[in-house]
Computed example of a mutant assay.
Amino acid sequence: MPLDDTYLQQLFAAISEAHVALRPEVAVTPLVHSAALSSMTGCEVYLKCEHLQHTGSFKFRGASNKIRLLPEAQRKTGVITASSGNHGQALALAGRTLGVPVTVYTTATASRVKLDAIRAQGAEVVSLDTDPLSVELEAARQAEQQGKPFVSPYNDAQVIAGQGTIGMELYEQAEQLDAVFVAVGGGGMISGIGTALDRLSPATQIIACWPASAPTLQKSLEAGAIIDMEEGETLSDGTAGGVEPGSITFPLCQHLIDRAVLVSEQEIKEAMRDVAATERWIIEGAAGVAMAAMKKLAPELRGKRVAVVICGRNITLEKILGALA
């Protein structure tokens, strides 16, 4: 779809409304200054603690906003979504809180920890032996057949508005930030954060971060159109997978992202180890992507005030032990 200033104004208005309406169910997460990481990198490093959000990731923001805004008739039918874990878990909790049945379609290879957490919130899980984008398209098809709303993890303005409340909080919690590092999968979080800061702090660089082995949206932005590509394995399972054709996040990312950074699996592991060693936090691979990208650009940003969105903590014991070994 074409992107104009009217759409951006409307999206910012939706973010501003959600920033107030979602409280207190959605927590305002801390923005923590890290003396150790600042000393290590030469930047003034602030960590946006989305791993402390309900369900252990930022996804609860968008899911809560979507469920909150459902018409009563759609609340009764329930909703369908596709998720590698965090979005499904967040939607399951938001649905349970408001009495909305949730069905989550996922890949057979999705994190067992995340799927168990989804089921624990009372949602139904349907696992398909295919790739994430195919799962997403099948979930959308089933939603249409069953007459239920499909809640995209990213291709939904109300979900994006919920994620954008992170940007509102960053603006309120910090003096002028020079850059914000955000891990990107389908682009919902960075679209929301970018829209908020584009209005509130236009001098802040929005830096998009991808694992080099799974950068579908980044390659699509380079190509000027959404493409399908085979991705490799990555610790950042929360950002893995293709992008739905026609996704609103594509033009938003084209407009809002100032810079793209790709990081290796080794750099992701090292970043996760750095956070464990300095902050004593367990973070998931996607959060490690944003941290690794900040470290990579640190020589260019010495003395600058930067924020890294620590987007989640949901990771298996085996994966975290492997990353920290």
Score class of each variant (00 low, 15 high):
residue 19 H to D: 15
residue 57 S to H: 02
residue 29 T to A: 02
residue 26 V to I: 12
residue 61 R to W: 00
residue 62 G to R: 02
residue 30 P to A: 05
residue 27 A to K: 14
residue 63 A to E: 07
residue 22 L to W: 03
residue 56 G to F: 11
residue 25 E to W: 11
residue 50 E to G: 07
residue 63 A to F: 05
residue 21 A to M: 12
residue 68 R to F: 08
residue 64 S to P: 02
residue 21 A to L: 14
residue 38 S to E: 08
residue 23 R to S: 08
residue 70 L to Q: 02
residue 10 Q to D: 13
residue 47 L to R: 06
residue 40 M to L: 15
residue 13 A to M: 09
residue 15 I to D: 08
residue 29 T to M: 03
residue 35 A to T: 14
residue 64 S to D: 07
residue 20 V to E: 14
residue 46 Y to N: 08
residue 69 L to D: 07
residue 7 Y to R: 14
residue 59 K to M: 07
residue 60 F to M: 08
residue 72 E to C: 01
residue 64 S to C: 07
residue 35 A to R: 14
residue 53 Q to E: 13
residue 27 A to G: 02
residue 27 A to T: 11
residue 51 H to K: 06
residue 31 L to R: 04
residue 60 F to L: 10
residue 21 A to F: 04
residue 22 L to C: 06
residue 59 K to S: 04
residue 66 K to P: 02
residue 45 V to T: 07
residue 68 R to V: 00
residue 55 T to C: 11
residue 12 F to D: 10
residue 65 N to L: 07
residue 26 V to C: 12
residue 37 L to P: 06
residue 23 R to P: 01
residue 12 F to R: 01
residue 21 A to N: 13
residue 49 C to P: 02
residue 36 A to R: 14
residue 64 S to T: 12
residue 12 F to E: 08
residue 43 C to T: 13
residue 43 C to N: 11
residue 64 S to G: 01
residue 63 A to D: 07
residue 30 P to L: 07
residue 32 V to W: 06
residue 24 P to I: 01
residue 54 H to G: 00
residue 23 R to N: 02
residue 41 T to K: 07
residue 62 G to T: 05
residue 29 T to L: 04
residue 69 L to V: 03
residue 20 V to T: 15
residue 45 V to Y: 05
residue 6 T to V: 14
residue 28 V to G: 02
residue 65 N to F: 00
residue 18 A to H: 04
residue 16 S to W: 11
residue 60 F to C: 06
residue 41 T to I: 08
residue 57 S to A: 14
residue 51 H to P: 01
residue 10 Q to F: 01
residue 60 F to Y: 12
residue 50 E to T: 13
residue 12 F to K: 02
residue 23 R to H: 13
residue 56 G to Q: 11
residue 72 E to V: 05
residue 25 E to F: 11
residue 44 E to C: 10
residue 14 A to H: 12
residue 19 H to L: 00
residue 31 L to I: 12
residue 12 F to S: 04
residue 62 G to V: 07
residue 68 R to L: 15
residue 51 H to L: 15
residue 61 R to M: 02
residue 23 R to F: 03
residue 10 Q to L: 13
residue 34 S to T: 01
residue 12 F to C: 03
residue 31 L to T: 14
residue 17 E to G: 10
residue 44 E to K: 14
residue 29 T to S: 07
residue 15 I to Y: 07
residue 15 I to S: 09
residue 38 S to G: 10
residue 25 E to H: 10
residue 52 L to P: 07
residue 7 Y to T: 09
